[in-house]
């Protein structure tokens, strides 16, 4: 029963992968290492999470586009043929540049 009692102290969204959670439950930290470099394992973890979240974002965008199309507010061709005006284009360029700053920061 002791392990059940200890579970009470854990938040619902605690991560079983993190040693802190493993310690709190008295369970062994069980994250296996598949490569020779633990950083590479972590990089895979981050990459898979990014793949997942990008898919979530694309799905959400797809939902918005389909809703707009259903209500005949924006047709799919309008999105494909969209050309930003000058100020929109400038704002978008800034977004894109800032995005690369963020994701490539560690290569600087």
């Amino acid at each position: 029963m002791d392990s059940m009692d200890m579970n009470h102290s854990l938040p619902f969204d605690a991560d079983p992968i993190q040693p802190a959670a493993a310690a709190a439950t008295g369970r062994r930290p069980d994250s296996p290492q598949f490569t020779d470099d633990p950083m590479l394992d972590r990089l895979y973890g981050v990459t898979l999470a990014l793949i997942t979240e990008l898919a979530v974002t694309r799905t959400r965008l797809d939902t918005v586009e389909k809703l707009l199309a259903r209500r005949e507010l924006v047709a799919g061709e309008e999105i494909e043929g969209f050309t930003p005006d000058d100020s929109e284009a400038a704002a978008r360029s800034r977004l894109q540049s800032e995005y690369l700053e963020r994701v490539l920061r560690s290569l600087d």
């Binding site: 579970n7 009470h8 854990l10």
Partner: peptide, 10 residues
Amino acid sequence: LMQGGYTAER
């Protein structure tokens, strides 16, 4: 990998 397993009661 289900945290707390089958018996966890928070």
